[in-house]
Each structure stands twice: as structure tokens, then as C-alpha cells.
Amino acid sequence: MSTITLLGLILLVLMVVVGGKAGAQSFLALLLNFGLLFLTIVLVAFHFSPLIVTLVVGMMVLALTIFMSSGDDLSSTVAFIASALVLVLLILLIVPVEHWAMVQGFGPEDSEDLEGLSVLVGISFVQVTIATAILSTLGAIAEAAMAIAAGLSEILDQHPQVTLKALFGDGITVGKQIIGTTFNTLFFGFFGGFLALFIWFTGVHYSFGEILNDKIFVAEILMILFSMLSVLLTVPVTTWVMTRAVAEKRRHAAKQTSPQDQVK
């Protein structure tokens, strides 16, 4: 049995033991997300536009992740709409910044890995790098949106009559609670991945200026910053979507009850 299969089985068993049905669902979502990610690469290899493929796959990943974990209807719907909005906002920022920073493709540090490979493959690597940056933030956006929507939904359960203004403040408060730990998840997640690269920099004695302008380094740091920004944007956006949803629901409820009041 291969290492991946055994580790996967252990994870599945643990998730089912700890989380029951919800655990099994989360594992399935993880598998499907991997399938979607691989599909993205294959579609781009077949010359579909990387940006459009990523946008569509991104929406699907967000929907899968959010609707397949346990959560009430209101918070899942709000989390999905908010995360989709954040995704669009983020793309609007990532596209110009990646063009500006020119960090597409590979750097001189990759030359050994590229030996024997043709790099002139006729696919825009600026777009591929943009797609990579977007994909790497998807998990963080979904997680943050769900956490905030769930927190707000709990507040609504306990205080159904809370004013919209107070609810907005509550959203920011919930955001404050998660921001520190979420940033650390991102920091460690990314830095764990770049450990080898940073060891390379010190081993080959890059100067500070060289590191600061290095293609690969800047590309990786930009990816961390995009993820952090996406989490940051998720806080007010999710809160805003929740207040809209609640306002809509209350207006609806008011419409339904008022004719009855008149009959009485």
C-alpha cells in the first residue's frame, strides 16, 4: 500500500470516529476539492483560459466546502455569498498586482528542476500564477466566512431582536477573535512550505536586497499577503451580507404578520 493511501485511510477513520457523519462529509469534500484542483490543471493544459477556469472552480470549491460542512441554512448561505464576493474582490486586486510585480512562472532557483523541460509551452504564466495565488486562498476564505457566519448566527439565536447596527459591531468582534489565530494558520502553513527556499537563500548568501527583489520570494510573500487580505476582507463582507439577509428576513416577516394584525 502506498503512503498516501494509508495516511488517507487513517485520516478517514479518524474523521469518522471524531466527527461521525459530518466527519465523513468533510473527508468527501476534501477528496472532491483535490479532484477539482487537478481538473483545473488539466483544463489549463488543454488551453482553457486559466482565469476563467479558476473563477469557476473557485466558486465550486467554496460551495463544496461550505455546504458540505455542518452548519444551519442561514449561516451556510451567508458564508457562501460572502466568500464568493471576497473571491471576486480578491481577483480584482490580484490581477493588477501580479502584472505589476512580474513574478510569473519560475526563477533562477528553479533551473535544476526545469532541466530537460521545455518552458515555451504557449500558456500565459502570468495567468497561471494569478490562478495559483487565487487557489491558495480558497481554503482560508471559506474557513473565515464560515466561522464569522456561524458566530453571528449564534448571536442571532440568542438575541433575535438585535439591531442591524449592533449585529455589524458583533461581526467585527467575532472577526477580532479569529484574526490572530487565522493569521498564524496562514503564516505557519506557508512558511512550512517555504522552509527549503529560505534555507537556500541563507545557504547561497543572498543579500537582503537580492531576496527582496527575488522572483520566487516575492511570489511566495505575495501569496501569503493575498491570503491574509482575503481573511481580513471576509470579516466585514460576511457581516454585511448577514445584516442584509437579516434585514430581508425581517421585512418579509413584517409583511406576513401585518395583514393578520389588521384582521384581528
Partner: peptide
Amino acid sequence: STIMGPLINVLFFIFVADTFPMALL
């Protein structure tokens, strides 16, 4: 059990999305 799934997802996308350009090549 409600937060573990999304968290694994966060790391999965960080660890695997990064390999996109090389896999494409």
C-alpha cells in the same frame, strides 16, 4: 468536528496549489 474539515482544507490549498505551474509544465 465542525471546524476540522475547513481547516484541513486551508492547509490543503496552501500545500497543493503552489505546485500548479510546475505540474502544468
